[in-house]
Amino acid sequence: MITRRHWMVLALLTGLLFLSMLTTVNIGSTNVPFDTILKDPTASLIVFELRLPRVIAATLVGFGLAVAGTAMQGLFKNPMADPYIIGTSSGGALAAVFALVFLGGRGQTLLAFIGATLATFLVYTIARQRGRAPVETLLLSGIAVSLLLSAVLTLIMWTAGRSVHQIFAWLWGGFPLASWGDVGIASLILIGCGIIFVYARDLNVLALGEEEATHLGVNVERFKQVLLFVSSFITAVAVSISGIIGFIGLITPHVMRLIVGPDHRILIPASMLAGGMILLWSDTLVRTFTSEMPVGVLTAFLGAPFFVYLLRTRMKT
């Protein structure tokens, strides 16, 4: 049941997110006094053309990664799962790198989306037997396809020679060149999040098991297809904007589940808001204190120890 506490957490998260966006717009390597933003054209340029789209893009990508992670964990009934594990991001990354190396970066977003979706459905098709894709085989075929795609990616990087540094920086993720155009693409993530939210109660029922969910009136196979497609769509959009940013999709739902409980009707919006906030602050840190270190490095440094901690505490119980 949804309680008043749930609404309070959501209200608090929304408030914090707006506060964070306002604050981070004013943080950066160049100090822009608040009162000069509208008067000084340089200040105005920095805030409206550089920082604001970057802040919004980072928030939206954070939304998407967290919601896709929440959906995958619910779908696989495994709190250690996320879109990266079933090969979605590897597919997106491979296609984007292909565009970077062979097409000079043209059509990168579109190709990333096609790659991500193809990888997801390849995994789904491999796992499918007689109209069903059991979670165990889905996870295993995801790992197999991911390994293969990573090998192909490495092969491309190895043959590419000169642009390796560029590919590498892109792969590790970040928002150094985020523009309003990227924000436009990133806003597609909101549509994906909305669709996943509509299925929140089905995700709850799925926690009882696939057959149980069927007995409660969920069309499980169609539901899984929709969720996989939407999650790979969200992931592809995120990958094409910022490359691979790990651990947001894994850690955020985890932490939020501890705070608001497992009900996806609350967990999805809560994870979304928290994921946006985490990525926004991570990106602000790297752009302020480093010379554009890929933000994926920071999230991995923060996320991996936390993941290990979670793993250890889960093993104890």
């Binding site: 049941m1 009934k77 495994n78 709190p79 709850n204 926690a207 009882l208 098991g209 149980e212 589940r257 409980g261 497992p262 009900d263």
Partner: peptide, 8 residues
């Protein structure tokens, strides 16, 4: 029934 998350 194995229930994967801590639903009440």
């Amino acid at each position: 029934t194995a229930i994967n998350f801590d639903f009440s």
